[in-house]
Design a protein around this nucleic acid. Structure first.
Lengths: 201, 201
DNA sequence: CCTACCGATCGGTAGG
DNA sequence: CCTACCGATCGGTAGG
């Protein structure tokens, strides 16, 4: 079911296979016996490498969260750049993280709610901070005249929607490179679909 | 846990309570005993009203699908209107369906993959037809000069992303009415965030 | 890493 | 609609 590189440690193989299964079938609907079968071992054997099923989910979610956070910091590192440039760079970084491991990203986006406390609250806090940073970039872009929107919070939601949806359709064998996707996404979000001086719609 | 109107039939109460639970906890993670407890009855008693757990999911998913399809047909009914108008009306209809029952919409959007065959294939077919209709409206809008995009298929994905994300943030007690949300979403997707003759970003 | 197993819980049914 | 229960499967462990 799964071709794993022989250079991966068993623990890394477990993580990778679990990521693919959690994405395809959902965390709750994936049993440890399925995971074991995909790895070619017995269910009990998994527990010599991990403590619990949730540990797998926890590691996936927080690893991806760390990557998003690091990308956000890098995008804002140049304090002299205008807010709209920070925003474009942050979108590009986000797309790159998503594409770099689309299975893990999909689990991060859709399965985090199965975390239990206190990890759940910690995760939600990270998400909120990340979204607030995007809202802030948009608001600063509006303030300095580069962007316009009647509602920065609303614009942030739409932006996040497009970013979040990406793992649902991205195929690694597609024609668009990560940079092309980021560029196209950015341009469509910034400039929209309507012809500038075309007819009212 | 749940306040259900006394005018609802028991079956309608089961559907409504199941919808709320499937949304909050996910289909796979919701047990029939949880559902029974939320209804104030015993687990076995549910089965005098329904045949199986999946029947509940099936009914939710296909009812919402029917509503989306009906809205799409209505939006395209006026054959003389330009494609961009069809598109705007279809977006407005979509938003109204989502907001009309946000729990059911969220289940429709996120839990359909737990359907088993042949319902699963049937559902995917409906989804594909719906998406194709939006892609077609965008392509016709580009052809008649009202819209512009380097990639209609890509634009369709971004549009769907924004529509799909809505149940994740919409709060019935929010300040925006359904029509305001539809209008704001449409305008942002069509006109983007950038100031028309502002600086390059 | 396997065998053998634990208690808990699952969806669902029979009979009343 | 409840009581009492079915076989199957769950996450996880002990001992080797």
């Amino acid at each position: 079911m799964e071709t794993t590189s022989p250079t991966l440690s068993r623990k890394a193989q477990i993580d990778q296979t679990a990521t693919a299964l959690f994405r395809r079938r959902g965390y709750a609907a994936t049993s440890m016996r399925e995971l074991a079968a995909a790895l070619g071992i017995e269910a009990g054997s998994i527990y010599s490498h991990i403590k619990s099923k949730e540990e797998l989910l926890h590691r996936i979610c927080f690893r991806v969260a760390d990557e998003f956070m690091a990308g956000l910091r890098a995008a804002n590192a140049d304090a002299d750049a205008p807010a709209a440039t920070h925003l474009r760079r942050a979108i590009e970084s986000h797309v790159r993280v998503l594409i770099n491991d689309v299975d893990a990203s999909a689990v991060f986006l859709h399965e985090w709610r199965h975390l239990s406390e206190p990890a759940l609250s910690e995760f939600v806090q990270l998400q909120r901070g990340y979204e607030a940073a995007f809202r802030d970039m948009i608001a600063r872009g509006v303030a300095d005249g580069a962007l316009r929107t009647p509602d920065p919070a609303f614009a942030t939601l739409t932006l996040f929607a497009s970013l979040t949806w990406l793992p649902n359709w991205y195929r690694p064998d597609g024609k668009l490179s990560p940079d092309q996707i980021a560029e196209r996404l950015t341009s469509q979000l910034l400039y929209g679909l309507a012809v500038p001086d075309g007819p009212a719609i």
